[in-house]
């Protein structure tokens, strides 16, 4: 009996896997956004940029108060200054980015054909530095967070627009890996990301209201009192991994970049509103 059950589960597992291998990113976006819309009929797509606050009117009002005089204002200014200071070789950050880096965050992460890899905004900043013989920055360093905060700020109101070049099988595979990662259980507590942010958004984990995955990438870096300052999206991934007693991975590792690729693509159509404050 048990063996039969196992057999059945394996078959279901394989067929699910099969289904995922041939998944279609365009169809995925439709399916996910429709799923959340059915789940929360009162929310508009844009509301998802507000994370858990979209689901809690009272918390949202408090949050909007904080965003009036945000604790990350200084970082934006300093980020602007850093961004506009030439490197030792006389070149600038602007030379590395389209439109001089202004209002471009909505296109990140993107699939880089030459590097055959997903490139996120923080990684692009470090690659720009390397290209100009500057030492790379730590992903939790003040300079990196200030720079990404500034670039996010210039892109406020831009619409997330992640492309998956489907004719490129490697790009599709990276997307697929990110998606699989999202739905895979891990850690001693045996959770997948999808358990908390796909299956149970709107429910409470102790006193924490769980946010939907839709919109998760719209507002980074984030200022948290718990962090005593700004932190990156990948830092948040690490935190969620710790929560489920799974081993956190290094920021900007391939797994996290592919995960970000999948998550950002899911949020296509949402307007950026970073940097932001979160509890």
């Amino acid at each position: 009996m048990l063996i039969l059950l196992r057999y059945l589960i394996t078959i279901i597992g394989i067929s699910l896997y099969w289904h995922q291998v041939f998944a279609d990113p365009q169809q995925d976006v439709k399916d996910y956004q429709q799923y959340y819309q059915q789940r929360f009929p009162n929310l508009s797509l844009q509301d998802y940029a507000n994370g858990a606050y979209a689901l809690d009117e009272k918390a949202k009002l408090n949050w909007l108060d904080i965003e009036e005089f945000p604790p990350y204002e200084q970082e934006i200014d300093q980020g602007s200054e850093l961004f506009n200071t030439p490197f030792a070789n006389g070149q600038s950050y602007a030379s590395c980015f389209e439109n001089g880096g202004i209002a471009i965050a909505q296109n990140y992460p993107y699939w880089d054909k030459k590097q055959q890899s997903v490139i996120t905004l923080p990684l692009a900043i470090n690659q720009c530095r390397e290209k100009n013989q500057e030492p790379v920055l730590g992903y939790d360093s003040f300079d990196m967070l200030a720079l990404t905060a500034y670039l996010a700020y210039t892109a406020r109101g831009q619409t997330i627009n992640i492309q998956i070049p489907e004719q490129d099988t490697k790009a599709l595979a990276a997307y697929q890996q990110g998606k699989d990662y999202y739905f895979t259980r891990r850690g001693q507590l045996n959770f997948s990301c999808s358990h908390c942010h796909y299956q149970y958004p709107g429910y409470k984990l102790r006193s924490e209201l769980l946010s939907p995955a839709l919109g998760h990438t719209s507002h980074w870096p984030v200022y948290r009192a718990k962090w005593g300052g700004l932190g990156s999206l990948h830092r948040r991934f690490r935190g969620c991994h710790r929560q489920i007693k799974a081993k956190p991975e290094p920021q900007q590792c391939e797994n996290y970049r592919n995960l970000e690729y999948f998550l950002s693509h899911m949020s296509n159509g949402i307007k950026l509103n970073g940097p932001s404050y979160r509890k």
């Binding site: 149970y200 429910y203 409470k204 984990l205 102790r206 006193s207 924490e208």
Partner: peptide, 18 residues
């Protein structure tokens, strides 16, 4: 156990509702 993360239990403060 941290069962209160997901379950309401008599006497438990601020339970989750998963």
């Amino acid at each position: 156990g941290n069962c209160l993360a997901c379950h309401q239990i008599a006497d438990g403060l601020m339970p989750g509702n998963i």
